[in-house]
Simulated assay, not measured.
Amino acid sequence: MDEVFHKICNSNKYIITCGDFNVNLLENSGLCTKIITLFKSYNLVNLFLEPTRITPTSATCIDNIYTDVVPSHKEIINLLDSDHCGQLITFQIQNKIITKKNITVNPKTAGRIETFKTKLINNLPYLSTHNDLNHQYESFFNMYCNQFNSTFIPKTISVNSNVSFSEWATIGIHKSRTQLYELYDEKIVVNTAEFNLYVRNYSKLFKKNCSVAKSRYLSAKIKNSTNIIKTT
Rank of each mutant, 00 (worst) to 15 (best):
V189Q: 09
F165W: 08
M1A: 14
D81S: 10
V4S: 11
W168E: 08
C61Y: 02
Y14H: 13
S158V: 10
T55R: 06
T178A: 08
T156A: 06
L31V: 12
G172Q: 14
L44M: 11
R112P: 04
S215M: 12
V199Q: 01
L180A: 06
E138A: 07
N160F: 08
Q92P: 11
F140L: 13
I153G: 09
Y217C: 06
C145N: 12
C9T: 12
A169T: 05
Q136P: 01
V23G: 02
I77T: 07
T156C: 06
S161W: 03
S211T: 10
D20V: 08
L26S: 07
Q94P: 00
C18M: 13
L31R: 11
D2H: 03
T109Y: 00
S128E: 02
S161K: 13
K119G: 11
N106H: 07
T57R: 06
P56T: 09
Y181A: 03
N10S: 09
T192I: 10
I62C: 02
E27S: 07
V189A: 12
I121R: 01
K214F: 14
I54L: 04
S58I: 01
L127I: 07
T232G: 03
N191C: 06
I89T: 07
K34E: 15
N64C: 11
N46C: 06
N28I: 08
I35H: 06
N123E: 11
P56W: 10
L25K: 03
R177K: 12
I121T: 09
L180Q: 08
T156S: 10
K204N: 15
N22C: 04
N209H: 12
S176F: 05
K230M: 02
S29W: 02
A220L: 09
H130T: 00
N78L: 09
H84Q: 04
L127T: 04
N146T: 12
N209C: 11
I65V: 13
F116C: 01
N201Q: 11
I36V: 14
N196I: 02
W168M: 05
